[in-house]
């Protein structure tokens, strides 16, 4: 007995059309976790890469030639563009669901921590103490933001799990 029959046991209407295979495939692509992970990885690589390139540029001991500066600026812009595109995709086109958000926030926290650590070391070795402190503060802010996102994602997932369990208890559905 399919879902519709179960919904209307006395309904004499014909069974609804089967879900077309093409639609099933399209929806599987739309909900794909792998696709979301790829967008996340691209966005994090772009954002972290842009941050490190900016730091490298800022810690150059001598002014760079014009062509090198243009190349740096171009690479930073590309990195930021990838990060922005990933943000847009993961919020509008392929939004993250409860468990996905926890995973994504965890990965983002790891990436932010690693980037912040690398940036502080880089600033300490190549730049001034003030720049190292500034980089440390910026890194700490990024890590804090990622940690807050992770906390929110966990809270949301917890709330959804509680809701699911309550609904299961109401309807008598077992795991």
């Amino acid at each position: 007995m399919n879902e519709h029959d179960r919904r209307n046991p006395g309904d004499r209407r014909p069974a609804p059309r089967e879900v077309p295979e093409e639609l099933v495939r399209t929806l599987a692509r739309e909900t794909s976790l792998g696709r979301r992970v790829r967008h996340l990885a691209t966005g994090l690589a772009g954002g972290c890469g842009a941050a490190l390139l900016t730091l490298l540029w800022a810690t150059e001991p001598a002014p760079l030639p014009l062509r090198t500066r243009v190349a740096f600026a171009g690479l930073i812009a590309v990195g930021l563009a990838w990060a922005a595109l990933a943000c847009w995709t993961l919020t509008r086109r392929h939004p993250l669901y409860g468990a996905d958000r926890v995973l994504a926030a965890g990965v983002a926290l790891g990436a932010a921590s690693a980037t912040a650590l690398g940036a502080v070391v880089l600033a300490a070795v190549r730049g001034t103490a003030a720049l190292a402190v500034g980089t440390g503060v910026a890194g700490a802010l990024a890590v804090t933001a990622a940690a807050l996102l992770l906390g929110r994602a966990r809270g949301r997932r917890r709330a959804l799990l509680d809701r699911r369990d309550a609904l299961r208890a109401e309807s008598g559905v077992r795991d």
């Binding site: 669901y97 409860g98 468990a99 959804l160 109401e170 309807s171």
Partner: peptide
Amino acid sequence: EDDALLVVRCQLG
């Protein structure tokens, strides 16, 4: 309840 349960499970991923 069934629909709501399905929706919540979807929201969970």
